[in-house]
Nucleic acid binder design. Structure first.
Lengths: 212, 212
DNA sequence: CTCCTTTTGTGACAATTATAACATATGCAA
DNA sequence: TTGCATATGTTATAATTGTCACAAAAGGAG
């Protein structure tokens, strides 16, 4: 179990495995093989085993894996057993949708606050999550001990918001604004560019010329 | 210019370059070097040149690239010059947000319709985009010649919606539901799992143990 | 207890992707 | 026109990631 240099693709797959295992667990399935996992998520058995092998030995030779047990291991590997608190900046369409997104809670994330400048929104709640003015960011982050910030504001404010988040003590940022932002290297940053995903699709369509 | 086997990472970067070039163009900047692009998007000059080299020679040695010209080339490479029409299935929080997301239009995508089962939503519009019942999917897709479908429904309906989209003639699907779905191989599929992105962040935080 | 089947974990190999180095082309100045 | 500075395009090299094959371990049957 050497923990250095894990491919990001492996992390993404582990996340998918975990989701799948959660499903199986709910169905009452107890045991599963790498081959069945591969089939369930669309991959190869060898890949599944290799991904897991980065972190230890979780199966039994000749038998396979215990669904719940393996899922617990993956959840721990991904750090999801810590109950992360998340703040979202931007209560527009996207910010509101993310705040109410059930998929976050299901995976152990709790959105504790949303921030916006719009005086008409401040004081309201989204699904029970309070909307604060941006000026309260630092205070709330400290008080709630939130470690993750999500940026859901227009591009031109993204860097500014990122700076505020960093200054407030957030350790990881998920940026939905389609702009390049920079943060200190002790802060994790990930960009989700919604348009880019469509562009990859159109590139492939254009390449294969099968769009009509 | 051999068009085979382009790394997906290259496509993602091209998309980012293009966004950056659009910014520069608006600022009136005419020329740029691979080094400046690299600095602007956070990469290396060699990487920028290599990415472009997959598709041709767009620069002038000793000089650099013409901003607008290069951007046009990339836009063409990504297939964005075709004015793609998009339908979104699911008018919940996420579907609504995506429908009104300005970033799509800025990159040449037009959301022409949203579909939902909720009778209270049908007939309404989101930012001018009409909401139809799912039963109208095929008809609208055909009529509008939409080629891209976005899935923004709960996981358990995702596969079903995907089947409907494929049956309606859509050639590419962007799936926001956190579930594994399958489509015929002549249909492009891409998954955007919002929780996975947070999980990659927490994995890195957990690894570095710098979250407190 | 031994053999046989099954499925893991791993080490060797192959493919892919990124980095670096360099030769080539361009523009400018003298 | 020649030489120099600059920045591209490309080839070679390195690093990373994925695939494959197989030995090792477990469980069950005889």
């Amino acid at each position: 179990m050497k923990t250095l240099k894990i491919p990001e693709a492996t992390i993404i797959r582990l996340s998918v495995y975990s989701r799948y295992l959660t499903q199986l667990d709910k169905k009452g399935i107890v045991n599963i093989s790498s081959g069945e996992i591969a089939e369930g998520v669309g991959g190869s058995p060898a890949q599944v085993r290799k991904d897991l092998a980065y972190f230890g030995e979780f199966g039994t030779r000749g038998v396979g894996y215990n669904v719940r047990d393996l899922n617990q291991h993956i959840i721990r590997i991904l750090g999801l057993n810590k109950g992360w608190k998340v703040v979202i900046v931007g209560a527009g369409n996207l910010g509101s949708a993310l705040t109410q997104y059930k998929g976050f809670r299901e995976r152990g994330f709790e959105v504790v606050a949303v921030f916006d400048n719009d005086v008409n929104k401040i004081g309201l709640t989204l699904n029970g999550v309070p909307i604060f003015p941006i000026t309260k960011l630092r205070e709330v982050v400290k008080e709630q001990e939130a470690r993750i910030g999500i940026i859901a504001v227009p591009s031109k404010y993204a860097q500014d918001v990122a700076d505020h988040l960093v200054e407030s003590g957030v350790k990881a940022i998920l940026n939905f604004a389609p702009s390049v932002i920079s943060v200190p290297e002790n802060v994790e940053l990930r960009n989700v560019d919604l348009a880019v995903n469509l562009e990859i699709l159109t590139f492939n369509l254009a390449l294969k010329k099968n769009y009509d």
